[in-house]
Design a protein around this nucleic acid. Structure first.
Length: 573
RNA sequence: GGCCCUGUAACUCAGCCUGGAUAGAGUGCUAGCCUUCUAAGCUAGAAGUCGCAGGUUCGAAUCCUGUCAGGGCCGCCA
């Protein structure tokens, strides 16, 4: 439909008179050169009453040296005189805009037909290209906190968005399973550890120990233990393996509940034996230098400060392991892009290590991106800190939200126990996922339990509810082949246009790696559907066939949209 | 001190990348709508110096500079 408008404009703007006036033209087309192509200039007016497409005349005003309002008027009148052809209903001008009205019945048929095709809204621009996402990445022996939730939820959605754009994606859960902290854990466990408690309540017990071991007076001893671990000490290694295994078991139950899966479970420990080679290469290329007994890369000239590569006791650091990991991944996956879904507080670290990769001669370092998210902050806008033991446990939040959903459901109708469990879980997850993803990534979020528990208004459950309403209509009757369109009401047109916009949103969400665009779209889609629902009765109406098809289309798009967010739908609610 | 992110209605936020028509939602507040497909819903209303000051532009919430405020990061944690 848009193409018809573009062609009309292109034709009209080819006027010889303009060329005669010496106005430069876009190569080959004869169209006066505009600051962009007509396709890009064409807009959708803020309200449907103004038109379906609008052409702003500002760009022409410059080359024609004429008031844009006059140009719009002239253009609209000329087009009207010439006749618009099929698919078009009319053309008008308002201020400096030429507004086009398209034939709504043709729009309706076109939209409904394309939704019926497989993969509506998806595109194949990433065909044949690999993307690797490093996401979730909780630390072993520490609680899976609300911070890792963000990485997990956002990473999961970015994965789906990439796939909807045709890319092949590998999701890696890159565990924080190596580093000085394990010196602390091992030291602490030797001193205060209890095998029984470890088996029963792994994370809580380990956290207790961690908080104690974190005291300054144990620093030296902890460092010793890590050095032994990295050196291959059997006892320490055994203890570390146990921590890792038991932690992973706890994490798995959370992933299982969230419905998030990974292609690869990896971790920093994987690169323990590749570290020496990286350090050697950095030395050979004279990128590192010794400073206070430690190895550093001086990036001050780049405005990136100083990166530590190796501690003065010879043990490794985060940056070193990340360098080794990136090189390894490039070899293994030949990625087009390597995405790190990690909190924004690590921005400097990523900029440093991308730069070091570049200095080592890895030109693909430009394909590495840090997709940063803001932090969940505690009350008063302060950072949550594990060290102070003030941690919000993921499992508690999930339980509370599910509990709230259950209460809500029980107040409505009597359900079997399984049905209650099933619905409460989905509603709670929708609330949590949507509550996170609707925010733009970079922003910090002040953690507020009420926010997670709210089910009205701009929330996940609202989206599920809209979907369930649509399902409820369709459950009662069969879809009909005949779809007579008598006269389209404004709610129907709005819904059709909204559905039509799905593909654009998927593209944009990929370009910006921004799941919140999908979330915003789903919300608007649900709102538009609810307006339709109230304004246009479906069952028993004269245009029942068409409206059923429209409801069905909404349902398909809503389901796909929610899927991109990692949210599963409910047929009844 | 340096760098990054943020500042939009009473509150929580979208819009900013890619500048255009009256700046959008939700919550809360006011007034309506359940004998008709699920009221976790819909309609209407009140509510905004888009932090502040300059600049670029025919046009700035959007781009640039400065400034103030909040958060984060800045060598042996990750």
């Amino acid at each position: 439909m848009k193409k018809v408008v573009i062609d009309l404009l292109k034709n009209e703007l080819k006027m010889k008179a303009w060329a005669a006036r010496g106005i430069p033209s876009e190569k080959g087309t004869g169209v006066p050169s505009l600051s962009g192509k007509i396709e890009n200039l064409l807009e959708v007016p803020p309200s449907g009453e103004m038109g379906d497409y609008a052409f702003p005349c500002f760009a022409l005003a410059k080359s024609l040296r004429k008031n844009p309002m006059e140009i719009a008027k002239e253009l609209a009148e000329k087009l009207r005189k010439k006749g618009l052809g099929k698919g078009m209903e009319g053309v008008d001008f308002k201020g400096p805009y030429v507004n086009f009205f398209i034939d709504k019945k043709i729009l309706a048929e076109g939209v409904l037909k394309s939704v019926g095709k497989k993969g509506f809204g998806e595109n194949s621009s990433g065909k044949g290209k690999n993307i690797v996402i490093d996401m979730s990445s909780p630390n072993i022996a520490k609680p899976f906190g609300i911070g890792h939730l963000r990485s997990t939820i956002i990473g999961n959605s970015i994965w789906k968005i990439c796939e909807a754009n045709g890319y092949k994606v590998t999701k890696i859960n890159y565990l924080g399973d190596w580093g000085t902290q394990f010196g602390k854990m091992i030291f602490g466990f030797k001193k205060w550890g209890n095998e029984k408690k470890l088996g029963e309540d792994t994370i809580k017990h380990l956290l207790e120990i961690y908080v104690k071991a974190n005291a300054k007076e144990h620093e030296e001893a902890a460092r010793e233990e890590f050095k032994k671990l990295e050196g291959g000490d059997k006892d320490n290694l055994k203890m570390w393996e146990k921590f890792r295994k038991l932690s992973l078991k706890e994490f798995d139950s959370i992933y299982d509940l969230l419905g998030v899966e990974f292609d690869v479970i990896s971790g920093e420990s994987k690169y323990n034996d590749k570290m020496d080679a990286v350090v050697a290469e950095l030395k050979k290329k004279k990128i590192v230098k010794k400073d206070d007994g430690a190895l550093i890369v001086d990036l001050k000239d780049e405005g990136l400060g100083v990166a530590l590569i190796q501690k003065s006791d010879g043990t490794s650091l985060y940056a070193t392991r990340d360098i080794a990991a990136a090189i390894d991944r490039k070899k293994e996956y030949k990625f087009h892009r390597l995405i790190y879904e990690v909190g924004q507080e690590q921005k400097l670290h990523f900029n440093q290590f991308f730069k070091i990769l570049d200095m080592m001669g890895h030109s693909w370092s430009k394909d590495c991106v840090h997709v940063a998210h803001g932090l969940y902050l505690g009350e008063g806008g302060k950072k949550f800190a594990t060290r102070k033991g003030k941690t919000v446990f993921m499992s508690d939040i999930l339980d509370d939200t599910i509990e709230k959903a259950k209460k809500n459901l029980m107040a409505r109708e009597k359900l079997s126990k399984e049905e209650l469990e099933k619905r409460a879980k989905k509603i709670a997850l929708a609330a949590i996922f949507y509550g996170d993803l609707k925010n733009s990534r970079e922003n910090n979020i002040i953690f507020d339990i009420d926010r997670f528990l709210a089910f009205e208004g701009d929330t996940g459950p609202y989206l599920l509810y809209s979907y369930a309403r649509a399902s409820s209509i369709l459950r009662r009757v069969k879809l009909k082949k005949a779809m007579k369109i008598i006269d389209l009401k404004k709610e129907e047109i709005k819904l059709l246009k909204k559905i039509d916009g799905f593909g654009k949103v998927i593209e944009k969400a990929y370009n910006q790696l921004a799941p919140n665009l999908i979330a915003n779209y789903c919300y608007e889609l649900a709102q538009t559907f609810n307006e339709f629902y109230h304004g246009c009765p479906v069952l028993g109406s004269a245009e029942e066939g068409f409206r059923l098809k429209l409801v069905d289309s909404f349902r398909v798009v809503m389901k796909n949209g929610l899927d991109l967010l990692g949210i599963g739908v409910l047929e009844e609610m």
